[in-house]
């Protein structure tokens, strides 16, 4: 059952929504859908997580919270917006307290449609998100190598030059 190369850990944030998608994300962890068989762990700590799952839209109150969670997550990271509210605001897009979908605050990599998003669709979304994570990771590795080369040069310099 090796669907993924690594075990992605995810952090879940519930924005403003009806909770339906929130419950479905939780249902993904329970026996019928059991995403833990792929090594997916729902962690509470953003610093441990590779994937950020957001259900529900963003409002004034949750905007700084979401931004903070996103900044706390280590690179490379993937954001998955689950449900119609998270992608576009859905039926609540005309409410006075709505800022819009998750993409109004942070960049989103995968949109999972559905009201409420079905567990199968959430699993599909996570699979898709991990493909994005893999490409991001490759790009990030090249970036890091470049950065390390620049960083190490002055360190080796005194050794090379004779006193």
């Amino acid at each position: 059952m090796s669907m993924f190369k690594r075990s992605p850990w995810m952090v879940h944030y519930d924005g403003a929504s009806c909770n339906g998608c929130d419950i479905e994300v939780l249902a993904c962890l329970t026996p019928r859908y059991d995403v833990e068989r792929f090594g997916v762990i729902n962690t509470g700590n953003p610093k441990h997580a590779d994937v950020l799952l957001i259900t529900g839209y963003i409002n004034e109150q949750s905007q700084p919270v979401v931004r903070q969670i996103y900044q706390q997550m280590p690179d490379p990271k993937v954001v998955i917006a689950i449900g119609i509210c998270a992608t576009s605001g859905g039926i609540f897009s005309e409410c006075y307290n709505t800022k819009g979908g998750v993409d109004s605050t942070i960049p989103v990599d995968v949109y999972v449609p559905g009201c409420a998003a079905r567990p199968e669709s959430i699993i599909d979304g996570v699979v898709k998100g991990l493909a994005v994570l893999e490409t991001k990771r490759a790009a990030w590795r090249i970036e890091r190598k470049k950065r390390n080369r620049v960083f190490r040069l002055p360190f080796f310099k005194p050794k090379a030059s004779p006193p």
Binding site: T87, D109, Y111, G114, R118, S121, G125, K128
Partner: peptide
């Protein structure tokens, strides 16, 4: 069949 997840709208 539900709409499958995608990277853009």
């Amino acid at each position: 069949q539900y709409t499958s997840p995608a990277s853009e709208k």
